[in-house]
Design a protein around this nucleic acid. Structure first.
Length: 846
RNA sequence: GCGAGGGUACCAAAGCCAGGCCAAAUGGGCCGGACUUAAGAUCCGGUUUCGCAGGAAUUCAAGGGUUCGAAUCCCUUCCCUCGCACCA
């Protein structure tokens, strides 16, 4: 926020365009953004306004910002406890730093190099007489293979004391090191050429010469480089160049790592194979990457150097160098330059007296692991990531110099970093509405101790108000679910468990978390800097709140990324309109009850169950599918069975309508509210009770009957399509009794392989000969094509197919426009009658 | 590089953990038909290929394996998304 306000204040064109044009902040409000608090307030108000437009039910009385004095008191209380628990420790920390502004710089303050990362080089200290020559490396394990150092003969180096000892290094390096926690004084200069051919030594590689190389960059680390020609292509090339001129021919590469797919000297091989000509070859960079990756991935140190995989050896040897040979870390950007907005170069500075949250503490981690194990995570797949994060978290720098927020209670120089101060604010929400009426001055730690921990202290102010807050806190806590986006797993969502574990007693610790996906716009990430942004408010104005809600819910479950595409949204609008007219039509349907009423109301019970189950599992997309399309397609079938209009079933349809709108009320509240009113229902639908499934109205017979009918209609249709014949009449032949027996034997058989033999042993089956054998085969195929659930229902109910089809005869005749005959297969002489199977009658089209 | 999650038909997306209910739900798009003066809306059907009898063949990133049987289990490869720290 401070960064934004500064940019607005100095009339930064990009920032102004962003807020004025993209977020449409009015000019007078924008002018006030020079005070960061105005930015906070403006957007807080905006969000509230738009959320209301979207129809979200939010208790705004609890709204607060993390910069309010009352909230600061809460944070101070929290940190007092964290400190007393020993979770806050002091240390040093590297940051991007601008010497001209004398401040750490954030991403937005950079003119150039915002992608640059801070790398940790380890300095290998070579001895040149009494003088130290430091070389920086990311690969300390290669120290055994050093054959020489490289110095740039065209560069002027400096002699300086570093922490009391004399060093030779580049001028840039001297300055960098001086920012990184080291005492540095310049003594004089020395040209690179003077160092050429001098000899240095290190205990791990012995005496080696310094050779000239122009590729050495004085602005890269120390400006002096150790050479490992066996494993570093640059080093090999530089050495080869010299040797081709007949110099230093006695220097031979020293191999120390065995790598799959390479011989003794991987770098040598790679360079020769790629036909690299000289040190300036642009391919050298990618080649280096290749060799380094291969060595890191599959490399193993030779036995005399420990025999471990490079992955592990690197850290171990680095540590050994630090402990035994005086090596230490030097921080450097991986890409340069990094430039501050003020135009000055940015360096890595080690900040002292930095405060850390000690997430590395194994005891604290253990508490978090234990809690996590008891928590319900949605979706469950994220558990692995949480567990990994807890294991991987190191100490977190939790204080900073600039910005808004709360000061550390015991060290007023530092502000508490925003991620660190927003870890348990869910607890604050529970009391926010009440506490904001209180004077911050009386909010001592004892007050919060009472509200959150129930701890008594003498002289607590406004006792009844505190009791009310305690009661409210205990009403909400422990909370059931914390909702946030998946990119916060590796910080906020994990931090908050740490902090809860530290502050609250076990019975008040979190019960679960729901992790959301991210939003895409037209397939691309939303990004204000790229202008790929579509404001919620615009969407609502363009399409209506219900359409926006239903589209978003329909496009994926909460934890999946959703993709907003304008051209797809308008069909959602049509669907809602279709829904409205269906409900209106159903509510105004004809009088008399009809036989399929039983079926419809039975189906509705199932939908209620499914929608409720989905909602309880946060499967909002699934809930929408069931509630909207599931019910809609049943209504379509119902209406089709009535001959295309809702000419009957008034009572049932009215009941179904009121259920349907309530099932959809959470998704499209505005539309359903209106329909609710039209139906003459009392009160708001938002407060109407959620529909409950009534098991006694589930009617398996009716459902099986309709299922059989629908399947048969489909069969007839597909037959008509294939034979392209104008039918004169259709005969439906239902399965004979003995096939039902076979069918249920197949269904109940435990040993599916031998069921055939078993069945054929039956007298009344065998006497039918080949027809029986075919029937068994067909029944088996048929059995596998039906869902096991349906088979169970069909077997246990054995529907009377003749009655079902006879009852639907009129319907069938209207559908297909031809007369239907319904008979038992055994009473039909047509050869096709033999096709009849249980739940799959033979169809004869003539 | 490290860690996590993915790749299903024109698109989105279920199915995968618990192999046979899967040529693969559902929605969208597109195509055809009905209704209509017409358009829209609505309804019905189609949307891998072949088929004048309900069938067959080939499909779920690619390749291999296990199995009577694989979208689903195992291995390898390729590709995508997210996180990697002081930044909210």
């Amino acid at each position: 926020m401070v960064g934004i306000s500064k940019r607005i204040a100095r009339k930064d064109q990009k920032a102004i365009t962003l807020y004025r044009d993209l977020y449409r902040v009015p000019q007078d409000v924008l002018d006030s953004f020079t005070d960061p608090l105005n930015i906070v307030n403006h957007f807080a108000n905006e969000y509230e306004r738009v959320m209301k437009q979207a129809g979200l039910s939010i208790d705004w009385s609890r709204r607060f910002t993390t910069v309010e004095p009352t909230y600061s008191k809460f944070i101070e209380w929290q940190w007092k406890h964290l400190n007393e628990a020993g979770h806050v420790v002091k240390g040093a920390h590297p940051v991007r730093y601008c010497p001209q502004c004398e401040n750490p710089v954030g991403d937005h303050d950079l003119l150039e190099g915002d992608k640059a990362e801070i790398q940790k080089f380890i300095l290998i200290l070579f001895k040149y007489g009494d003088v130290t020559i430091p070389c920086a490396t990311l690969r300390p394990e290669t120290v055994y293979g050093v054959t020489n150092l490289w110095v740039n003969p065209n560069v002027e180096y400096v002699r300086a004391t570093v922490d009391g000892k004399e060093w030779i290094l580049s001028r840039d390096a001297m300055y960098k090191i001086s920012l990184q926690d080291h005492e540095v004084t310049e003594l004089g200069v020395i040209s690179g050429s003077e160092l050429v051919d001098k000899t240095v030594s290190h205990p791990l590689c012995g005496e080696i010469p310094i050779l000239p190389a122009v590729f050495v960059d004085p602005d890269m680390a120390t400006g002096l480089v150790m050479s490992v020609p066996a494993h570093a292509p640059y080093d090999y090339i530089a050495l080869r160049d010299l040797q081709q001129k007949g110099k230093y021919t006695d220097i031979k590469p020293v191999g120390l790592i065995k790598v799959d797919g390479y011989g003794e000297f991987p770098a040598v091989e790679a360079v020769e194979k790629a036909d690299i000509i000289n040190q300036d070859d642009p391919n050298l960079e990618t080649l280096t990457q290749e060799v380094y990756s291969a060595e890191h991935a599959t490399g193993k140190m030779y036995d005399q150097y420990g025999g471990k995989p490079v992955k592990f050896a690197r850290d171990e040897i680095g540590q050994m160098m630090t402990e035994k040979y005086g090596s230490f870390i030097m921080y450097e950007f991986d890409t340069r330059p990094v430039v501050c907005r003020c135009g000055s170069r940015v360096y890595v500075k080690v900040l002292h007296n930095q405060w850390f949250l000690e997430y590395s503490d194994p005891a604290w981690k253990q508490q978090v692991y234990d809690q996590l194990a008891t928590m319900e995570l949605v979706p469950p797949e994220v558990r692995i990531e949480f567990d990994r994060t807890v294991g991987w978290l190191k100490d977190w720098a939790c204080s900073r110099r600039i910005g808004l927020g709360t000061k550390l209670p015991w060290d007023q120089e530092w502000l508490i970093e925003p991620l660190s101060d927003s870890t348990i604010y869910m607890a604050y929400y529970t009391i926010a509405a009440r506490i904001k009426k209180m004077d911050p001055a009386i909010l001592t730690p004892e007050v919060f101790d009472y509200i959150f921990l129930g701890k008594e202290s003498p002289g607590l102010p406004q006792r009844s108000e505190l009791d009310a807050m305690r009661k409210e806190f205990l009403f909400w806590y422990p909370y059931d679910f914390r909702f946030s986006a998946k990119d916060l797993i590796s910080n906020h969502l994990t931090f908050q468990i740490f902090h809860h574990c530290s502050i609250f007693p076990k019975n008040l610790l979190p019960h679960g978390m729901v992790v959301f996906g991210m939003g895409l716009l037209n397939g691309a990430k939303m990004s204000s800097s790229k202008g790929n942004v579509y404001l919620l408010e615009d969407a609502i104005n363009d399409f209506g709140a219900d359409t926006v809600r239903m589209f978003l819910i329909g496009s994926g479950e909460p934890w999946q990324d959703f993709d907003w595409r304008n051209e797809l949204v308008s069909s959602t609008k049509k669907q809602i309109e279709r829904f409205s007219s269906s409900v209106r039509e159903a509510y105004a349907a004809g009088e008399s009850p009809v036989p399929i009423d039983r079926w419809l109301i039975s189906r509705v019970q199932e939908h209620i169950k499914e929608v409720t189950r989905a909602m309880e599992n946060f499967q909002t997309r699934q809930a929408l599918q069931e509630a909207f399309f599931g019910l809609e397609s049943d209504l379509k079938w119902y209406r089709r069975r009535l001959g295309g209009s809702l000419s009957g079933g008034k009572d049932i349809l009215q009941e179904v309508s009121t259920i349907w709108v309530r099932l959809l009320a959470p998704i499209i509240p505005f539309t359903t509210e209106e329909l609710w009113g039209e139906m003459g229902q009392q009160g708001l639908i938002s407060f109407a009770p959620w529909p409950e499934a009534d098991e006694t109205r589930t009617d398996v017979d009716a459902e099986i009957g309709e299922e059989l009918l629908a399947r048969t209609v489909e069969d007839i249709e597909s037959l008509l399509r294939i034979i392209r014949l104008k039918p004169r009449q259709v005969t439906i032949c239902t399965s004979p009794e003995w096939k039902w027996e076979i069918f249920s034997m197949i269904a109940s058989a435990t040993d599916k392989k031998n069921v055939m033999r078993e069945i054929m042993q039956k007298e009344q089956v065998r006497e039918r000969g080949k027809a029986a054998a075919d029937a068994v085969k067909n029944c088996t195929t048929h059995y596998h094509r039906l869902s096991s659930e349906l088979v169970d229902q069909v077997i246990s109910n054995q529907p009377d197919e003749i009655t079902i089809f006879t009852a639907a005869q009129k319907f069938l005749e209207t559908e297909f426009g031809v007369p239907f005959t319904i008979v038992q297969a055994e009473e039909c002489s047509h050869e096709k009658a033999g096709y009849a199977l249980p739940f799959k009658p033979a169809i004869i089209i003539e």
